[in-house]
Design a protein around this nucleic acid. Structure first.
Lengths: 221, 221, 221, 221
DNA sequence: TATGAATGAGTATTCATTCAT
DNA sequence: AATGAATGAATACTCATTCAT
């Protein structure tokens, strides 16, 4: 038949991309709702309004899908965290900027982070990824700690160890407060209130200076 | 687990008790090794050197087994934590005692705690249990925070919120450092070193006093 | 079956409907051959030429499958029985029409009826269903009995009790003669012969008039 | 040690018999309560207050146990039925005696009969046994029918076929009314009332004489 | 004899993945 | 590209039966 069709090459590519994105968006919703581990492939395809088979045209696996989420997340992470902290000359400010950066990233990439965290529990490959994500935060935090220590604050602790603890605190608070809504079922936590609580801990820890003459602990009464 | 199944008759004899304990011990090893969620009933029976069916003479479920672990854990928890902190008159001392208590309990009941934590990700009933376990620690910590605030320290933060963050920090550090051995693959963390790092954060946070004239954030130097 | 499980999504397409019907047909063959209680899911899938998992795309259970059979059976039952008896003005004719209706329904839905009957032995929910199916027949029969009693026949008996006995007779004869082929292994029973035997009992019972002066039982001759 | 023990050979034998009987009694209770097919070996041993292993000292099987029940039942059956009917010279009286005999036997051996009936659904060997039990009743009933037919009553029906239907009626009524308590949940059926209903059917059927000039059924309107 | 803990074959069920249309 | 029906390997669970004590 003589009807010369215009090659729809471009639009096709587009459509395919769109479907892929729809899957990712659906997965984010599902992961946020019921976690990565208990999410069934079917839950995701249903959420995406696609059929079961279609999923495998775009991803090989639930893990593959998670990997795709992570990539996006990775691509934007620096904007939220690393860059945020970079500008600040004052270590305390750097820490606060870092916290706010992480908090914002967490809001947006909740599903990804929970996904990685849960996958890490079961799959060593994801444990590695999780460790890497943590690592950059820890490195930054440790750097600030070291600067504070140079100034005489919080002496005698391994900066990396302390950084690991503090980053974990932030991470875990996000998980508990934002994703699982644990601990505070009865009331909504205000975003700023939450940040202030974390900030109080960070600030206190980093600026701690032991009293001049430290009395022996548990001295004889 | 939400549907309360009738527990199996639970043979009470000597031999029977021993087998039940063997299963619990085997489960602790398996959970510690590969986590609760990915553990198969078969993994546990094999580890216990028992046959598949035997498991069901003692437990109805993997969940039921976890419940049994928790009970034991619960029974001993107060000795390690609550009682520990009770004697101390000084809030800082109470916090330190609580930390050491939790740390010790964690060493011993690692598998249980990880099990509950993982089960909580997937099963609301365990989320509830996990929340309860956290609650007692949070309550105690919040109490100490309030006492410090009465004294003028760490002002302007919701004690419960801050307590939740700090308890999470301890919990999560135990998980990362002890159970997953994340962050510090290259070296063994000394127990005392780990405790000191956590203590530094707790002490700093609780005793923080803002500088007399609080300067505006990010003022020009 | 007491716990109402959510039925699987129940694909509605053409192909899917056919498969569902194939399962029902296969189940009817299997139930007729070896009874409902001893039928394994596997027997049915094999008979249907499908794989194990496919069964669960269409039914949650063996019970669910039986329920599906019953529905079909229920839908047609009135055509065979109730309507049949409705037109007849003479109670004896109503009874005969009812009998022929039930007989025909039984031929077609043997497997369903046997299934319900067997399931009722083990599961109270099916006992209820079975009771309901019986109830309509009993009600109709009792009605005819009452009309005959108004006319002076078979006096002094509870119509419902008698109806229950007579309906049971028909039911059980169908079971023994048609489904189990008991009692008459050596020869084929002609359909009409069987019906005539049942009819003889029904007719005799309903038209019975006690002899005028009832002699004492077991008097000396 | 010089204490010469008396050989407890006799008592031992007694004890063993007693245990066996306890199992049989327990089984009767369990079968009557929940049917033969759904009864687990464990249900029976628990009901008997014995341990699981002990069961196998006395029986090889649940079937073996059922066989033992049947034997006892068989041994007494003639007293209740066959002998009962034998004395009567009048066929109607023979039928009534037979009915009362069966009814009494059923009360006592409910569990056995239900057991055989259910086992027959699943196991051909028990189908055979069931058929045999039925056979003697059918033979007797057919005999009475033949005598009535010689007298001109209920003409034109195969006596055995009719007997099978009538015996089935009685059997099934016992099952429904006594064992399953179906059809009459709301009220207790009086024993005599039940017997009278069955008797009405038997009497009517056997004494039926077609009206002199039988009009064509469904004549032209 | 009696016990009851242990066994393992048999069965049901789930769900990621494939493939004909 | 998309569909959704079909697959079957993996796993959980039950229960009759054995056996060391």
């Amino acid at each position: 038949m003589p009807k010369a069709k215009a090659k729809p090459a471009e639009p096709k590519q587009r459509k395919s991309d769109r479907t892929r994105d729809e899957f990712k968006a659906a997965a984010r919703r599902v992961f946020a709702r019921s976690g990565y581990l208990s999410a069934k492939i079917n839950d995701i395809t249903r959420e995406a309004g696609k059929s079961a088979g279609t999923f495998y045209l775009y991803f090989t696996d639930k893990e593959d899908l998670l990997r795709a989420l992570i990539e996006e997340f990775y691509a934007e992470l620096p904007h939220n965290i690393a860059l945020a902290g970079n500008g600040a000359s004052d270590p305390m400010e750097a820490i606060e900027d870092g916290l706010r950066g992480y908090w914002n990233a967490y809001q947006k990439y909740q599903a990804d982070i929970v996904g990685i965290f849960q996958a890490a529990m079961v799959d060593p490959a994801y444990e590695q990824i999780w460790r890497e994500i943590r690592a950059s935060g820890i490195r930054m935090t440790a750097h600030s700690i070291r600067r504070m220590q140079d100034d005489g604050a919080c002496p005698g602790v391994d900066p990396t160890l302390l950084a690991s603890a503090l980053c974990g605190m932030v991470e875990f608070a996000c998980y508990n407060w934002v994703s699982r809504r644990i601990d505070f079922k009865e009331r909504e936590i205000e975003e700023e209130e939450a940040i202030q609580a974390l900030l109080a801990a960070l600030r206190g820890t980093l600026s701690y200076r032991p009293p001049a003459a430290k009395p022996a602990r548990r001295r004889i009464r």
